[in-house]
Design a protein around this nucleic acid. Structure first.
Length: 649
RNA sequence: GCCGGUGUAGCUCAGCUGGUAGAGCACUGCAUUCGUAAUGCAUAGGUCGUAGGUUCGAGUCCUAUCACCGGCACCA
């Protein structure tokens, strides 16, 4: 047997026979380590304690103290244990796959009877029994034929398909948790008892397509969450509760921002408060775009299908468009229009009016474009995913050489806006050429190079999404992470030589000939609807003062302060602050509570003292201390806070 | 669109095996003028998402349909 050298994290190394397992190594160090060991990290690879090591390597023995491998193993073993539990309770159930995901795992099953919520408790109980059995976990490598045969015999067609889809003819790894077997890459724990029985919870049941393909069978998915200990699980469940409190649908009602109703699914009825947020944001964007060199335009809502046919959208998205048919008395045929699902084709129409010179480029057109898309019913989500929305859309017509500079300019533009709105960080995803595409490789090289160069010139990082670009050009997507860790695509920047081609856009170049411009699609917020939703959730309803729909409530403590309250409100309103008086015959406690629930940032309380001294007692949302300020001081102070960030001196 | 769940007063929710709808908060009225997250009392308010059906009788059972929620698929 040849010898190999294993190097430990502290830099020391020891010599072992080739084929030694991490379990042996741990035992060699100490019996207590052997007991505590859960896995190893071999050359940065997560390694099962049972897997042999055949060559020189770095090694670290992991215990429950090592968070990443511990969570990975606990969740992965729980996936197997859950599948075993389900098959023990309902033997006719077929198993498919069960990966580890953020905060937990899921496993997909095929079973005729649907799981019901009460089943979760049943499964959890069975899982705890399995854990308490401390069943050994062991692994073997099988050849493909044997594995296929095994699963065919057991009537597990999904597993057979999985094996057949694994490329090459490499051997397959099998794992046993007690007598229960699953095809699995591993690694796993050493026995089921290593899983903490009190640190997991089954969360929900959902449908999911086999292999993520909507043409294939719908399976039943059970989600679970797990941590290393009870406390971590508890704090995770607590975080979920907190997250639910900042749901924009709940806050939208509590703050009286908007509502939605059955007669207009996926569309928003904005209430005065919500519309104040919306228009304040829109006014801000309008000023930013003007300063950024855009010219604002507006285009029609109802457009003949001919234009959508020409743009190619009719062909591809017809069933997702709201079609409007009009019967005119003398017309030969019915006019078929569609509510515009996007603004791009209309912007090309504006560009196409009159001759354009290369001197006009880059030409930046912007529109707060209301779009309608018949989104699938299951896609709708509050005001985040809707059927009627307004994009802060813009199209830049330019030459190929201008793309890089325009892109860099846009990234800076977007970053400044996100910062003003309270988002310091955002993620850029760079999607490159897909397999099916139009245009020459040279052209793709050049355009992709321009985008990459632009990102780098701003000194930002990006995530590469190879092959995810549109068939006609690469794009950048800008993602924001909300306070609960969910990411939302908001901004976008897309290079498009295709639509100008289809719709015949040209400009006269220096050489006096007609040329085809590039069209850059870009949006900063994405849609106002979604962005307002994200703002609400990110700030848990406590919007930045300048965006808050109700900025100040002047609440009286005694009715003798009513006149003074009106005076204070008038002074604030004159200074541009959204202020209102609350002179109802209610206790100050009641008023404070009500306006706090309504997320009013500043409450000014007025009693006899304030009237006499011409002061106000201010209370900021979320704080329970108050401060007494002279009326003459508070007005300019709040007026400053109420000024949008781009207009502050 | 697919799988599962839900749909009762403005809001949050209760209503067991079918017998003709209940609470708290909000609203309104009266009393209270009370210093920082709910003052007291009283009145009023729904035909139970919608449409059919079973039944002597349905919020409660059945069918269809719509919307919403959790996922999946989709997102020009």
């Amino acid at each position: 047997m040849s010898q190999i050298s294993l190097t430990f994290p502290d830099g020391n190394s020891r010599s072992y026979e080739a084929g030694v397992t991490p379990a042996d190594v741990a035992a060699d160090i100490s019996s207590s380590l052997r007991k505590k060991a859960i896995s190893a990290t071999i050359n940065d690879q997560h390694w099962d304690l049972q897997w042999p090591i055949d060559a020189d390597a770095s090694i670290a023995i992991n215990t429950m103290k090592d968070e990443a491998p511990a969570l990975e193993l606990v969740r992965h073993d729980l996936a197997h244990i859950m599948a075993r539990a389900v098959q023990e309770i309902w033997p006719e159930t077929q198993v498919t796959i069960g990966p580890v995901i953020q905060d937990g795992w899921y496993y997909d099953f095929d079973r005729t009877e649907p799981f019901v919520p009460e089943d979760l408790a049943l499964i959890e109980k069975k899982m705890k029994e399995i854990i308490n059995k401390r069943d050994e976990v062991r692994t073997e490598i099988w050849d493909r034929k044997k594995a296929v045969q095994y699963y065919q015999d057991r009537n597990e067609p999904y597993k057979v398909e999985l094996i057949e889809s694994i490329p090459g003819d490499e051997p397959l790894r099998m794992y046993w948790h007690g007598d229960w077997q699953d095809l699995c890459r591993g690694p796993h724990l050493q026995h089921t008892g290593q899983v903490p029985a009190d640190a997991f919870k089954l969360m929900s049941i959902a449908g999911a397509y086999w292999r993520g393909d909507s043409n294939r069978p719908m399976l039943q998915r059970i989600y679970g969450t797990a941590f290393r200990n009870k406390e971590d699980l508890k704090s995770h469940l607590h975080r979920l509760e907190e997250a639910a409190k900042r749901d924009h649908r709940k806050l939208g009602r509590e703050m009286d921002l908007f509502h939605m109703q059955e007669e207009a699914p996926g569309q928003v009825f904005w209430h005065p408060n919500g519309w104040t947020v919306y228009t304040t944001l829109q006014d801000y964007m309008r000023r930013k775009q003007r300063a950024g060199g855009y010219q604002e335009i507006n285009t029609p809502q109802v457009v003949d299908r001919k234009l959508w046919e020409a743009s190619g959208h009719w062909d591809k998205y017809q069933e997702h468009m709201f079609v409007v048919e009009v019967e005119e008395e003398h017309a030969k045929e019915k006019a078929i229009n569609a509510l515009k699902p996007m603004n791009c084709p209309c912007h090309v129409q504006v560009f196409n009016q009159g001759l354009k010179s290369y001197r006009d480029l880059p030409l930046r057109l912007a529109e707060f474009g209301s779009c309608s898309r018949y989104e699938p019913s299951g896609a709708l989500h509050g005001i985040m995913r809707v059927r009627g929305f307004t994009q802060d859309d813009g199209h830049i017509f330019c030459t190929e050489d201008q793309i890089e500079a325009e892109c860099a300019k846009f990234i800076d533009f977007l970053a400044g806006i996100y910062k003003d709105l309270g988002f310091e960080k955002f993620e850029i995803a760079f999607a490159t050429r897909p397999e099916k595409r139009v245009g020459s490789d040279e052209s793709w090289d050049h355009v992709e190079g321009a985008l990459e160069g632009a990102i780098k010139s701003t000194g930002r990082d990006f995530r590469l999404e190879e092959g995810d670009g549109a068939f006609y050009g690469p794009k950048l997507d800008f993602y924001l992470t909300d306070a609960i860790g969910r990411t939302w695509q908001c901004g976008t920047f897309q290079v498009d030589p295709n639509l100008p081609e289809r719709l015949g856009a040209t400009y006269i170049g220096e050489d006096g000939n007609k040329h085809r411009p590039y069209m850059l699609h870009r949006a900063t917020l994405g849609s106002f609807e979604r962005f307002v939703g994200i703002l609400i959730e990110e700030h848990a309803g406590k919007l930045p003062f300048w965006l808050a729909p109700r900025q100040v409530v002047v609440a009286t403590i005694v009715s003798d302060a009513d006149d003074y309250a009106q005076e204070v409100v008038a002074a604030l309103q004159a200074a541009g602050v959204r202020a209102e008086a609350d002179t109802r015959n209610e206790k100050i406690n009641y008023k404070v509570r009500e306006h706090s629930v309504g997320k009013v940032p500043i409450i000014l309380a007025l009693g006899a003292r304030e009237v006499a001294e011409r002061t106000v007692t201010a209370r900021r949302l979320g704080e329970n201390r108050t401060s007494v300020v002279n009326l003459s001081d508070i007005v300019p102070q709040l007026a400053h806070d109420a000024t949008p960030p781009d207009q502050r001196g």
